[in-house]
């Protein structure tokens, strides 16, 4: 269906071009900064035309920050976060939308309220929780006398055994971040738009809830899952504060931390050229993900089923 509405088409293109330009302008300047030498990057006024040192700066930045290891860490952690978040929120939204159980709305609201506090604000308690993840268990064991029992029977100290310390591990980096209220909320919105008739039809055909979920809901949600994957991947990739607090081992840090270390601080040299060029290759995986995933939107998968 080709629409012959030239005026509107031109208007839309214009809007999109302007939008794209506005959106990319800062990126362009970052690129310019990343292509200058240390001297040039300090000059005022700032040049609008890039220099020639982009690749050199990238090489310097990569080595300076030991990015090969950091990159891998970031990838593992981010993929873990995406998979974890998607799984949990899909299941949670499914439960909330399609089942009636006591405290259903309370659960929804509780999940939702947890949205309200970003990681940064609850960071110190979260750290305590994760570094000493078996703490509550220990406490429980103490109270009920289990630890005494185990101690006298086996000679093992239950206390010591229940030290579950996830500092400096991948699981520690991933787990605290995988509960997601926004993803749950999004899926709940989406599931609410799925026509009741589909659910009826499935039930008539003898499909149980799990089959309904896997064979009908999931395929329908593909566009949303794709969109969300992009968002979640980038969220996970760009996590700064949590890995900062949590990892003391330089080998376990993420790419973002490496980038931050390169950003000049007050008493040091303003090596913005290195930092900006590093910003680009740190940005690379998220950019690639965007480029890949956005094609899913055009596949028209969404149209089927309705």
């Amino acid at each position: 269906m080709i629409e012959r509405n030239l005026g509107l088409t031109i208007f839309c293109h214009a809007v999109l071009l302007l939008g794209a330009a506005a959106v990319c302008l800062p990126l362009y300047f970052a690129f310019v900064a990343g292509s200058l030498t240390l001297q040039e990057v300090q000059q005022t006024p700032f040049p609008w035309v890039p220099g020639t040192h982009f690749l050199d700066n990238i090489a310097t930045a990569w080595n300076q920050g030991n990015f090969s290891r950091l990159y891998i860490n970031s990838l593992i952690v981010t993929v873990g976060i995406v998979v974890g978040k998607l799984t949990i929120s899909l299941i949670a939204a499914f439960a909330i939308t399609y089942f009636r159980f006591p405290f259903r709305m309370t659960a929804f609201w509780l999940i939702f309220v947890s949205l309200m506090l970003p990681v940064e604000v609850r960071i110190i308690p979260t750290y305590e929780a994760v570094a000493d993840a078996a703490g509550p268990l220990r406490w429980f064991a103490d109270i009920t006398g289990i630890s005494w029992l185990v101690g006298s029977v086996t000679g093992y100290q239950l206390e010591a055994a229940l030290q579950w310390n996830m500092v400096n591990t991948y699981s520690g980096l991933i787990l605290p971040l995988i509960a997601s209220a926004s993803a749950t909320f999004l899926f709940r919105q989406f599931f609410l738009t799925v026509p009741e008739e589909l659910c009826e039809a499935a039930r008539l055909d003898g499909a149980g809830p799990v089959k309904f979920f896997l064979d009908i809901l999931l395929p329908l949600s593909r566009a949303n899952i794709a969109a969300l994957s992009i968002i979640l991947f980038i969220y996970g990739w760009n996590q700064y504060l949590w890995p900062l607090l949590f990892t003391t081992d330089a080998e376990m840090q993420t790419a973002i931390l490496g980038l931050k270390h390169l950003v000049p601080v007050s008493d040091a040299e303003p090596a913005w050229n290195i930092a900006m060029s590093a910003a680009f290759f740190v940005m690379l995986p998220p950019a690639v993900i965007i480029l890949l995933m956005q094609r899913w939107f055009t596949k028209g998968l969404v149209d089927s089923g309705k």
Binding site: V23, C24, L27, I230, I234, I256, A279, M283, I290
Partner: peptide
Amino acid sequence: SVILMPYAIAPVI
């Protein structure tokens, strides 16, 4: 792709 790019940049940058 272009309009989505800013999302990929690290917030710190």
